[in-house]
Design a protein around this nucleic acid. Structure first.
Lengths: 201, 201
DNA sequence: TCGTTCTGTGAACAACTGTTCACAAATAAA
DNA sequence: TTTATTTGTGAACAGTTGTTCACAGAACGA
């Protein structure tokens, strides 16, 4: 195949072409079964071209991760910080995150199914956006505690993890059932997180 | 190396030798990076021997999974069914599960870090023990609802998933921090699950 | 003890895939 | 138009690893 005119697509665009293709292929096959060949073909480039834009397979993978987490985080911060009430902050966080995952199903698959793989784990959690994400969760929990929304005997890190775990669990289930919109799940999640499953006393 | 006398170890024992070794190596390196050679060496057999007991790498991997889940499930059922009170059933479930994970750290690593991998997921969830495990969770939730411990507006499948997600999250965190005993975490988990993070009203 | 059967061995095979690189095409400069 | 530079190409390379199989040793029955 011959490289046709792509002058209108500058370097950044080509890079994001490949990232988009990678997102799709990684989501479909998983990290190990996804081949550079697959990704290149999906992006309509030759195999070698990928290596003009990314150092190696790992570099591509983690670039994808960091990119998306950075996007999600900045989006969340922007929307959530508009609110004052802690309870509403949590709800807005959920709404925006759900919306983001709905628009980025492929990434969500990668994030959930692969994001906790042994060798991946530390690199993701240890990356700058990964840490920032976790820090932000902790900050929200702390705020909730100060404003008397969240019990003050809870460890913020743990509580943040559980918040996100519930979010992930509900989204996974929803995707499995093939249900459409995630948007209206925020109250369900808040219910589990804030009120628990017990009956009111 | 020459095969020395192993007449005292019958076929089942040899099979479980390999399973034990596999558990360790899979936990250490993850499914893809674990090689049959590694596993055979760990079990003190030659490479080919593994294939006398398991069809292929996948077969070995899923045999390991099913084995352990079956063990955990029968253990849980035995202990939990002794109790009458739904609240106590949940606590006993947690205690036993935590104890099991503490004694089977390697398996827990595989279960959590690799168990949700794309190609693994369906096969685990779809396996007989996998389905039975999920069914049992659902049964517990339903019972909790009948006994007025758990809100009746919640979907049992979803609620069961969240119960287990919270359990996993707390155990992961505990392992990361390198803390010792998991046993006393059951109340923490019950707190998150039953009462939620909100303040009492 | 001898022969038959079962089991373990590990070198060899085959397939796969990340990565490179000599070459070609496209673009920009002259 | 001609030359230089940048970018894309995909066949070839190299390393890895799941799997097989011809052989050898152990176990067992007679």
């Amino acid at each position: 195949m011959v490289a046709f005119n792509r002058k209108e697509r500058d370097k950044k665009l080509r890079r994001s072409d490949i990232l988009r293709a990678a997102e799709h292929v990684f989501a479909l096959r998983g990290y190990h079964k996804a081949t550079i060949r697959d990704i290149a073909r999906e992006a309509q480039y030759a195999t070698g071209t990928v290596y003009l834009h990314f150092k190696d397979k790992d570099d591509l993978y983690f670039a994808l991760f960091e990119n998306k987490i950075k996007m999600l985080l900045s989006l969340l911060k922007e929307r959530v910080e508009r609110e004052e009430d802690s309870r509403i902050k949590l709800r807005v966080f959920l709404r925006e995150a759900l919306d983001f995952f709905e628009k980025n199903k492929d990434f969500f698959r990668i994030f959930v199914y692969e994001g906790s793989q042994i060798y991946t784990e530390d690199r993701i959690a240890g990356s700058v956006p990964g840490r920032q994400f976790k820090e932000y969760l902790i900050k929200l929990v702390r705020e909730g505690q100060e404003r008397r929304i969240i019990r003050s005997d809870l460890i913020p890190g743990q509580t943040g993890d559980i918040f996100f775990a519930i979010l992930k669990t509900v989204v996974i289930e929803c995707f499995k059932l093939g249900k459409g919109s995630l948007t209206d799940l925020s109250d369900t999640i808040l219910g589990y997180f804030v009120d628990g499953v017990g009956r009111r006393r």
